[in-house]
Design a binder for these strands. Structure first.
Lengths: 212, 212
DNA sequence: ATAATAAGTGTACAGCTGTTGACATGTCGA
DNA sequence: TCGACATGTCAACAGCTGTACACTTATTAT
């Protein structure tokens, strides 16, 4: 029995092509194509390889898309891990959180651009993958919030409701940030918007049921 | 000079075909195709006419999509007009508002399904059209809110921020309601979610700057 | 050095696409 | 009645698509 080993050239050409395929898809989406509308041949054309060579790396576009989803969320998960390990300090926690978040999103803009666009528009399997990743985020934030809020007045469902509201708000910010070059409306304005929305939500959360 | 008149058969066949083209697109999107991925030929096939006949009604798919946008928002505008003319009465205003909203959306589900999906995923021109309609909604809601809130503590930007938060929340509800047959998770739950989110937002709004 | 394997090329195929032009048919006003 | 016009059919086109198969070339382990 033969031992299966990873094949790679001395210049890592193999891995580069695979990466180039990812990049090509992201680039084409950046040029205003939805994932569904990108053809296999377009991608290989962009990379500069023969259409047949695509199959050496992925069985079809769909699985490429799915890998792109988990790849994109891996970087987001990294951000959240960093933040949790090294919590935001200082007086204005909310503002700084939004700022680091926006900075991070812009640094990986093409990944998040892909996610935002494919979340609703694309193929069912990809949509489902993104959805389950987002659900994970919501439940993670829920447990984070559970530690900070009074668990007597907050049920599990209500924590989820709050988490969804916060993530929903941030999602809208990302949408406005990345779609249609609309970041010409100053980034600072969007950070301001996100900050105020979060602040208002947390203000509401602080009053939740204590007023009744 | 000849007077141009609308041509219609006694059975209104003309208008029916046009309507049938709209319906075909909505139907195909309901079968999980993004608008961009629907071909002209598919639509005519669905209707049962020759591909060439399409051009008798629209110059291309894009303008059909644009008309579909304004058509969809026309019904939504009607809802809002109704609500404003006949405001929700009784003890639980928020709950009833969310209920009527959800009912209305479900009654025109295919239109809103189209809007939700095309808002981010589709062609640039259609995206822009939907976006400007949504901006209009936000500004309308802003002026509505201005009448109900203390304009001393609420600036125009802040009113817009609040309106965007509320509409964003409702948009998420619609997304969950219409995408992926996910309304099997009971509709009542979604109404509950929407109600609580709105309640929390308004709770935060009530405290906005009065606490400082 | 050689055999195995990974990666890429070239060619070919049937199927679908948008769009055109010439033609047929039904509807209605004059 | 008849001509104008709206609507629809039919056949054809060039172009793009995904995928298959046989092939060449590079890389690596033994």
């Amino acid at each position: 029995m033969r031992i299966q080993k990873k094949h790679r050239r001395k210049d890592n050409k193999t891995i580069d092509t695979r990466q180039a395929l990812f990049d090509a898809v992201l680039e084409l989406m950046n040029r205003d194509k939805s994932f569904e509308a990108i053809s296999l041949r377009e991608v290989t054309r962009e990379v500069g390889i023969n259409p047949s060579a695509f199959y050496r790396h992925f069985p079809d576009m769909n699985t490429l898309g799915l890998e792109l989803v988990s790849l994109s969320f891996k970087t987001l998960r990294q951000l959240l891990k960093d933040v949790r390990a090294n919590p935001v300090q200082g007086s204005d926690v909310i503002r700084k959180s939004v700022e680091t978040f926006v900075t991070y999103v812009l640094a990986h803009s093409r990944h998040y651009h892909f996610v935002i666009r494919a979340r609703l528009g694309g193929v069912a399997t990809i949509r489902a993958a993104i959805d389950s990743e987002l659900r994970l985020l919501v439940s993670e934030l829920s447990t984070d919030l559970a530690r900070q809020l009074n668990t007597d007045t907050w049920s599990t469902d209500e924590l989820k409701m709050l988490a969804e509201l916060m993530i929903g708000s941030m999602t809208r910010i990302v949408e406005q940030l990345l779609i249609d070059n609309r970041y010409d409306q100053n980034i600072v304005e969007l950070i301001d918007l996100g900050e105020k929305q979060l602040r208002l939500i947390l203000l509401g959360a602080a009053q939740w049921r204590t007023h009744s």
